[in-house]
Design a protein around this nucleic acid. Structure first.
Lengths: 386, 386
DNA sequence: TGATTTAGTTTACTAACTAAACAAATGGGT
DNA sequence: ACCCATTTGTTTAGTTAGTAAACTAAATCA
């Protein structure tokens, strides 16, 4: 229960000031006051606190207009580090950044860990990564681990591709390193990353097509994860009521038609191979191989059905597609858009702006959000909507 | 932009106190203070204001325990009236209630209005209804109009069944009567009603099956209507990728298989009639007529597909089904539940608790919410979740 | 050099909170 | 019967974070 108190007011206003410096800085006290409708006195008091905490610093300003030159305030982005880990099925990627996502190093590891060794293994990777970092005033302020499975209350509740459900990742790692540890589903992280670094929209869906198909949902500006963290299990929505059998027990799940795995398996079968790589399929497609064309036609058709269903239930401003196929064959996104026939298609359908870094940058956003209490909106890519 | 100010503190706390009296009253100042973590002094000051505004009143309490007997506070539910209108395609229903939804009268009218006459017609109905009401301190505090179509920013943006899009309902009626007028989609109102009067859940989906199929979405406790108010157009999600042609331009929309209209048309065709009423189909089903059984089997199968898709994308706590079929054939809901085969089915699937009053009571909730700034949770039906 | 303009600080005041003392009302024990 | 313990609600004094307005600081321009 959040009751009103003086502290709450100061808290709200401090976060608004910090948000302004972070997302619109460098900026003067006077400009902040004008933007937020606070008095200069109040902003000065709040800024004094932020300066002391080393969250912002004062910098010189260029002579601009008449009058006293403002003292510009800048967010101290390099005063801390964030660790964002993608715990993939075969690969673990560890990315470190400053407090706004700027690259401070990236390492890849093979994921050879079993249920019994994975926490220790991750601890080793985190330790090695942290040792490599230069000292900063705040140190590492958060660790986010992207999970290929569902997460509820910071715990893996279901993960079909590895046996890590219900392990005490967050508890053990946060105790060991004295740093908060956040687990989150990879599709959710992807859409958070796309939102903060590319598409500054309030209602946004990210669709991640890999082995399975998952979506992340930003509704009214915040990530929606459902009552038990299972929102976005989009691969198991049904698009052919009496279609292909799915291991989940139903028939006709989208995943059976449009996932990378399904398409590649079908292609392998069609060309009589045991398995086919995504690179081979894309090469064949670009060489106008008729079977490859058919396979990706089907991808386009079924992903379009999926997006139609998302758009008709959610009405987002943008749907971001992140898949190997659309990354390497850019015109697929336009073909998917062209398939959408009904009146709802004033929704934008776009390819991922972050591609294979969306999960990592989404993790950075989760840590920023917890550390600062503020949503970070990168100014680098001004694809704002609304 | 909501910046913190002294007034904001009082505003937050006043709404919390009012919410406590409304949803847990009658209750003493001391109990409110204990619940909210405020001091008795603060609660007394706030209550003094609410007493003066005639929002709450003091009542005697029964001797309960040792110590001074508390003065109980009760919400003044009868100090105002709410007008909730269901603007149907063939019928207009006007419902009046006190400030917590208690029935103060209901009238039905035939909807014979064209685009040119509908606002005047509604104004006549509203006038007649308001004349019939007894005087109350606040009078009518809000009018909500349930729309069978999509609504965005209090305006009808699309309505396939009647030609009322983009008419200035809210502006003209609110000016004429001096009362705020709210438009909202009927499926959205339904789920709001179910949430407040029956299922006190935070993540809830209501699926309304009539001529078309719409859903209302409560995400994290608030109604989600999408970027442009088109969320919940669930009838046009595709469940058979190369299925029946739909007037929307796509093939295989759910509405072509599971809407009342589709089922009744198919049944008429199967029995060689021009049209068949829902009562006839239900009677035949109850008489074990094999064709009627087949028709409702299909309804069950396709609605289950739709619900599967909702559950896998949204992960709600509860899905509430409101349709003529499930109202009159109670075991259909269980059969739908039984069709759901994958692991997500720890979600509850329940029949509507409000049935044909859900739209009207949802409209009441919208008005309460705007008038009091508080969500009303009726204590009558304690089906709380979570 | 001084007028004008803009930035940031200081001062006096106010609203709304808290803590703690106080007043009021009631049941129970002796 | 009467006093005490207990609980409710009010009063009082003090704190915090806001506002408005005066003031100081630093810059441009004529």
């Amino acid at each position: 229960m959040v009751t009103g108190s003086k502290e709450l007011i100061r808290d709200i206003n401090t976060h608004l000031v910090l948000e302004t410096v972070l997302n619109e800085g460098p900026v003067s006290r006077a400009a902040i006051a004008a933007k937020l409708g606070l008095t200069k006195a109040t902003v000065s008091a709040i800024v004094a606190g932020l300066l002391e905490e080393q969250m912002v610093r004062e910098i010189e300003s260029e002579p601009a207009s008449i009058g006293r030159r403002p003292i510009l305030l800048e967010f101290c982005r390099e005063n801390g580090r964030i660790l964002s880990i993608d715990l993939g099925v075969n690969t673990i990627v560890a990315f470190t950044s400053d407090l706004t996502g700027n690259d401070c190093g990236l390492q890849q590891y093979r994921n050879t860990y079993t249920r019994d060794t994975v926490i220790k293994g991750l601890a080793g990777i985190i330790k090695k990564t942290m040792n490599r970092l230069e000292k900063t005033p705040f140190g590492v302020v958060g660790i986010c681990i992207g999970i290929h499975g569902t997460v509820h209350e910071n715990e893996i509740t279901f993960a079909p591709y590895y046996d890590y459900a219900h392990l005490p990742f967050a508890k053990e790692l946060s105790e060991k390193f004295g740093v908060p540890v956040y687990l989150e589903n990879e599709a959710n992280l992807s859409v958070v990353g796309e939102k903060s670094f590319c598409f500054h929209a309030k209602d946004l869906i990210g669709i991640s097509v890999h082995s399975g198909i998952g979506v992340g949902i930003i509704a009214d500006g915040t990530l929606y994860t459902g009552a038990k963290g299972n929102a976005g299990e989009f691969g198991h929505t049904i698009v052919e009521a009496r279609g292909r059998q799915c291991p989940c027990g139903n028939q006709g799940c989208l995943e059976q038609y449009a996932s990378e795995r399904a398409i590649l398996q079908d292609y392998a079968k069609a060309v009589g191979a045991k398995s086919v790589s995504i690179d081979r399929l894309i090469a064949d497609y670009n060489a106008n191989d008729p079977v490859a064309l058919t396979m990706l036609d089907r991808f386009v058709r079924y992903i379009a059905v999926g997006i139609n269903n998302l758009v008709n239930t959610f009405d987002p401003e943008i749907v971001v597609i992140n898949s190997g196929f659309t990354i390497y064959i850019p015109d697929l996104t336009e073909r998917i858009f062209a398939e959408l026939k009904n009146r709802m298609n004033d929704c934008r359908i776009v390819p991922s702006g972050l591609q294979d870094t969306s999960i990592l940058l989404g993790g950075v956003c989760v840590c920023i959000h917890h550390f600062l209490g503020v949503d970070y909106l990168s100014p680098n890519n001004p694809l704002t909507v609304g």
